[in-house]
Design a protein around this nucleic acid. Structure first.
Lengths: 124, 124
DNA sequence: CCTCAAATCAGTAATCATTCCTAATAACTA
DNA sequence: TAGTTATTAGGAATGATTACTGATTTGAGG
């Protein structure tokens, strides 16, 4: 595990975050100023391939890397962009049942206005 | 509704298919040889915005357009590429319940080896 | 400590899906 | 029919991601 790969992993797991490659790149530059975006992509891809981090795709086609490799759904607020995990396991359980038990990957991504943004609207 | 937009819609609904923009473009050229890819994209986007067709994103980031606008999950076979609809409504019902009833969009995409490809493997 | 081979890197060029732009065409309205 | 508006074809631009290349780092064996 190189210094760069270790840093990329730390940025994700240390923040328990959901970050795009560009966001990981920005934070990584604070520690290794001349790290390259290609290195961030390669290491994120390897970490995901090794099952150490999660990954899902937004409706605009860009990827988000997830500190947790355990499959779970995500709720995204289109107003503020916040990403919340879906802790309830019933979705993944049902998906496994429907697929016949042999899931290779599973992505559940839903948009809904989060409670914070909803109360902002109701104030007005 | 222009001739081009009507054709794009017919290609999707007539085949009850799950097609990428490039696949729609290929089929569209059989009827309007000089139709442009940009036109296909624009009309697919408008049809989706108007709620006439569905749309979801593959793990490689490319979009698939769905003849059915009703939200439902999809199972994709990584061997043959076949895309199957998930008819069981419990996934979407649970998702709505978890999100608090106000879903703006929902994508459920899972990979699993389909029964056809599985029996191919078992033969060998 | 030194050497060499393998892994990894930084930087950049290339790719690919998608969007944007513009001048031309088609469709509608009065 | 004339004028106005919507839509098109074609190509250029964009943005995320991947591929390539020569340089740098690393780590095992001597």
């Amino acid at each position: 595990m190189s210094r760069q790969k270790d840093l990329v992993l730390d940025i994700l797991t240390g923040s328990r975050g959901h970050l795009t490659a560009a966001q990981v790149f920005e934070r990584a530059k604070e520690h290794i100023p001349n790290i390259s975006l290609g290195t961030v992509y390669r290491n994120l891809g390897e970490l995901h391939g090794d099952g150490m981090i999660g990954r899902f795709v937004l409706s605009d086609g860009s990827s988000v890397y997830d500190w947790s490799p355990d499959p779970h759904g995500h709720l995204i607020c289109p107003v503020c962009g916040k990403i919340e995990d879906i802790g309830d396991p019933c979705l993944m359980d049902d998906l496994r049942r429907i697929a016949g038990g042999s899931l290779i990957s599973a992505e559940i991504v839903a948009e809904h206005v989060c409670s914070d943004c909803l109360s902002e609207v109701n104030k007005a």
